[in-house]
Simulated assay, not measured.
Amino acid sequence: MTGQGAQGFPRLDAVGLDGVLVRFADDLSEAANRAALAFSAALERDTPDGVEECSTSLVSAYVRFDPLAVGVDQIHAALSQRLAEHDWYAADLPSGRRRVSIPTVYGGRHGPQLAEAAQAAGLSEQEAIASLSQAEVRVTTIGFAPGQPYLGTLPEVWDIPRQTGLTPQVPVGALVVAIRQLVLFSVTTPTGWRHVGQTHARLFRPDHDQPFLLRAGDVVRFPAISAEAFDTMKDDGVTVEALT
């Protein structure tokens, strides 16, 4: 197999007695995230014997299997064969992805750390709002809390560190930034990421057939709206369209 993986990748790591982690890199990159999403989707379309679950993280695919039905060596052989069939780093992203627009108010009481984040990025507040609101980012993974997306990758100016301390609490729908990524919170939580904007997005909807608003691979934008428009919104304003 050829591709953009660093030396030693992709590789298979055992996870307990019934799991294998298919790792495409140690660090987040577009190619490694693409590989993880594409490989996981391929396994779901054509699942090897004995595999019971497949899920993704930023740069890995986790495979859980039934150790009473199939041996570790068999699983490793099946996964190694699949890895050799394609350049997963250049594979097409899974079908069924969507483009999602989530209206966001930046700065002020709704994004109290925008100025701090902008300064760290070497931007004015208006330049920061323009950059974040115009960026199209991919949901690289869902994790930490139900339906919570990690989104990237932002322009290089946003390679800013997390805070050294914690913000005690940010609300549901908070948009935060660090290390060229955005996170949109599905729960009220403390965080070391900088709170730059606020949405009305309801990411976890347990009463829906599809409880998570976003899925790994979706493309998301956070267009800027005024504080007045945000405060008078009667719904979340989220729009979703299929990607061709």
Rank of each mutant, 00 (worst) to 15 (best):
P112I: 09
Q113G: 09
L114S: 05
L114V: 11
A115S: 10
A117Q: 03
A118P: 01
A120E: 13
A120Y: 09
A121F: 05
A121Y: 00
A121C: 03
A121H: 05
A121T: 04
G122V: 08
L123G: 05
S124E: 03
S124C: 12
E125N: 15
Q126N: 14
Q126T: 14
A128W: 10
A128N: 14
S131I: 06
L132C: 00
L132M: 00
S133W: 08
S133I: 10
Q134F: 07
Q134G: 15
A135M: 04
A135V: 01
V137Y: 00
V137K: 02
V137S: 03
V139Y: 00
T140S: 08
T140A: 06
T140N: 09
T141K: 07
I142V: 15
I142A: 12
G147M: 09
G152H: 01
T153H: 06
T153A: 11
L154Y: 01
L154R: 02
L154M: 06
L154N: 03
P155Q: 08
E156D: 15
V157F: 08
I160V: 13
I160C: 12
Q163C: 03
Q163Y: 01
T164F: 04
T164S: 14
T164P: 03
Q169V: 13
V170L: 07
V170N: 08
V172P: 04
V172R: 11
A174G: 02
A174L: 05
A174R: 06
L175I: 11
L175M: 07
L175G: 04
L175C: 05
V176N: 04
V177C: 09
V177H: 07
I179L: 13
R180H: 11
L182W: 08
V183I: 09
L184P: 01
F185K: 05
S186F: 08
S186M: 01
S186L: 07
S186H: 03
T188L: 12
T189V: 15
P190G: 01
P190C: 00
T191W: 10
T191M: 04
G192D: 05
G192M: 00
W193H: 07
W193G: 14
R194I: 03
H195A: 10
H195R: 13
V196L: 01
G197T: 13
G197H: 05
H200A: 13
A201T: 11
R202W: 07
R205P: 10
P206C: 13
P206K: 15
P206Y: 12
D207Q: 15
H208P: 09
H208N: 14
D209M: 11
P211Y: 06
P211V: 02
A216S: 13
G217Y: 06
G217F: 09
V219Q: 15
V219C: 07
V220T: 02
V220C: 11
R221K: 15
F222S: 02
P223M: 06
S226E: 04
A227N: 10
A227V: 12
E228M: 07
A229H: 04
A229E: 12
F230A: 06
